[in-house]
Design a protein around this nucleic acid. Sequence first.
DNA 1: CGGATGCTTCGGCTATGATCGAAGTATGAA
DNA 2: TTCATACTTCGATCATAGCCGAAGCATCCG
Lengths: 225, 225
Amino acid sequence: MKEGPVIASVAALLGDPARANILTALIDGRALTVSELARAAGVTIQTASGHLAKLSDANLLIGEKQGRHRYFRLSGPDVAQVLEALMGLAQRTGAVRVRTGPRDEALRTARICYDHLAGERGVAMLLSLKRRELIAGEDDLALTPSGRQFFVDFGIDVAALEKGRRPVCRACLDWSERRSHLGGALGAAILTEVIGRDWAVRDGRSLAFTPTGLKQFVEHVAPEA
Amino acid sequence: MKEGPVIASVAALLGDPARANILTALIDGRALTVSELARAAGVTIQTASGHLAKLSDANLLIGEKQGRHRYFRLSGPDVAQVLEALMGLAQRTGAVRVRTGPRDEALRTARICYDHLAGERGVAMLLSLKRRELIAGEDDLALTPSGRQFFVDFGIDVAALEKGRRPVCRACLDWSERRSHLGGALGAAILTEVIGRDWAVRDGRSLAFTPTGLKQFVEHVAPEA
DNA sequence: CGGATGCTTCGGCTATGATCGAAGTATGAA
DNA sequence: TTCATACTTCGATCATAGCCGAAGCATCCG
């Protein structure tokens, strides 16, 4: 007769910090592996594995096995919707981690998403690469032959990336913008290069371009027109 | 940097069965006392008091002291919205208490809300009483002089109700309809009368009118025109 | 005033479940 | 085959928090 217990079981799943971290890491619809989610949640892999089992038993997540990896993603947009509603409620009720304004803006401009470039700059870069047909595809991104040459000239060992187990290109939905930016091994390599050339310095999760560094970046990697 | 823990603390509050019951009991926007909520949650008053302290510390509930009672209500519509989103998610993911169709329909037609009549019949009754100016007001309902006489004639000891501490009339938002029905001491007295006259029998939370009982009810209490 | 009602606080019991180390399984690479 | 990686399962530990009995305030009523 009561319907309370029903919502309690679902809410209890969202109520554990590790699981909440896992879910929010997946909120953009990507599928991540167990180890990536463990890192995001700040727990060991065993613990994350247990949480993921519970979440997929409850049909909040869907897991797909690919080789020796197991990718998890949200089971539907309604899960993300609940998460967002909870974030809104947390904000209004003051349970939010106060995040001062300036930092917010810096994060939106350029930040690090795992190990690659995100925010306005990241989205602009991927758009530019696509416009110049160096990268092709929408959901499944791939390097075109000219794109491959472009990054080799840029100083990236593309052959090494292609030998690795990690996908070279991966579209990653941006949290602040609502478009994709470039992840994957190539995205990580580009970020390494950007930082190695002192075009930008990382400050926690946000990325601060120097004036000349930004000019170089736009000129070499992401021309607007 | 992470925003996970934020939603976790709120979600953890919703994740306890007792608290979930309390919140769903308040989902229609009414304010209930500690003891009413304890009954709804199926715990003792002490336990409920502790839960209510947590919920109002987290600004999910607002408590108002009235005499020796303490009334709690949701702190805003966004709380109800989150609860509904969670119910929807619970339904889709199969964590729902299967409730077979027929019972659902019976509940929508006529059911007991705490101790008074709710559902289509309850909403229709209050509309009828208002139209005939036996009850006045929108949010704060009150018996008019003619209304008082009407219920005395009907066989209800209105004077006794007025001496009690409980409000005689109270508007109660209906879960299935989206309009108010009549609660309070008078609402409870009417339901007692309806059942005492064998116009209807209660079956759990739903209320089954007999054919002749329904005719009597409509004729005496809630004429349509 | 004294008794009753409504609620809160305190203390101790208990159960649940989150966590990680260690060992086991499956897949891929050399 | 042998090793390495990715993940799962098991077992033990430990902290959290829900729960209720008992006692303490506060309010109302006669």
